[in-house]
Design a binder for these strands. Structure first.
Lengths: 216, 216
DNA sequence: GTCTATATCCAGATAGAC
DNA sequence: GTCTATCTGGATATAGAC
């Protein structure tokens, strides 16, 4: 299964087949337009197995959602531990999201493009999920440290990430011809101007970023 | 029916009841979680009438989509004719969207929050719909006139509107306590810094805006 | 044009053999 | 644990009276 990272191999190959098939179908057709039978067919698994493993269609969606949120959380972990300054962390998170949009399209589409509340009613809103809370705290950190100018945290986070998320959606919708990384510098520059403490101060490309880019 | 503007009264009161009921239900529960019977019940209309008028559930969604896109287009018309400079037009569009998010919540939610391709398969992608194309052309205009710095049009549009759209979504999801207009100036300031030609140049509040605000 | 009652279909879920 | 065959509910859509 093409998860965000490869360091956590799928525990059960059968679960894995089911989840990958479901992810692809959900993204292609939308959750409600996919039947359990289609998942079963594409995953080459019997319908009984699906109910044994996940308890039904919603169970699949739930497992998928949990899993991918975890992966996203680990991505942020990686950035936070390898990059020092909060503002550079923001930059690196966007860079990796852009990259993943090209390499693991459906994962990003499922996380950023789907309306999860329409099929996971009691699930916490994705904006309240852990990765997104952490991103907000990184932005708050950047404001405290004087890297971002002090303003409403919601406004700052939206200013820093709103443009990038918009670009991701446009790319997923097929409106951008070039791969996202080619827009990266321009997107960062615009976002940065909106949040930086003094507009002359350039966003430093943290050395940790360069190191990770070389090894990754 | 609480359309964006009141100057175009609903032609058929019965159609109107059906569409309003459908809009509310679609936004509250999601298109796929709403049955025709529920619409029928809330609109106080028989099922037969719904099929006579709209030909079914998808017909309702289609009519709704067309209608609300038109209203949005008229909103942009209003801005373009009353506000002179493209950059001030951007500002005013965002201001009005923020306002409408408070006063006509479900309309904005349906337009900005729903995944229309999941139930209107052959409909053009919303980013390709007329209002959004026009917004991009306004941004392009601003770049030509030297109000915005020249960069990729997609990046510029995302930078200008991405943060605002993000804020709208956060508000719709109930994460912002205060009404959107209270965040307006901060949102505009951040977006503006990202796209403006020279960062010192302040976005002028066009006189046309003030006039319209007084009369509207 | 509008309504009620009904038909048809298909999705999600289960039962029970293996 | 895995499979096939089956059940059931509820949705869309229609038929036909008024």
């Amino acid at each position: 299964m093409p998860y965000l990272k490869r360091n956590a191999p799928c525990p059960e190959p059968l679960d894995c087949r089911i989840l990958t098939a479901a992810l692809d179908l959900f993204v292609e057709n939308g959750y409600h337009n996919v039947s359990v039978h289609e998942v079963q067919k594409r995953a080459q698994v019997s319908i009984g197995s699906i109910y044994n493993h996940f308890g039904g269609k919603e169970g699949i969606a739930h497992a998928l959602y949990e899993h991918l949120l975890n992966e996203l959380d680990e991505l942020i972990d990686g950035v936070v531990t390898t990059v020092a300054s909060p503002s550079a962390q923001c930059r690196e998170i966007i860079r990796q999201l852009f990259e993943h949009t090209e390499t693991h399209r459906n994962i990003i589409a499922f996380l950023f493009h789907a309306k999860h509340t329409e099929f996971l009613r009691e699930e916490t809103l994705i904006c309240d999920a852990r990765p997104f809370v952490r991103i907000r705290s990184i932005v708050a950190d950047a404001m405290e440290k004087g890297e971002f100018k002090k303003t409403d945290p919601w406004v700052a986070t939206s200013a820093m990430f709103g443009g990038a998320i918009r670009m991701i959606q446009l790319r997923l919708d097929g409106l951008l011809d070039k791969p996202l990384p080619e827009y990266f510098e321009a997107v960062i520059e615009a976002a940065w101007s909106g949040v930086a403490e003094n507009s002359d101060h350039q966003l430093e490309t943290n050395s940790g970023v360069a190191a990770q880019r070389a090894t990754g």
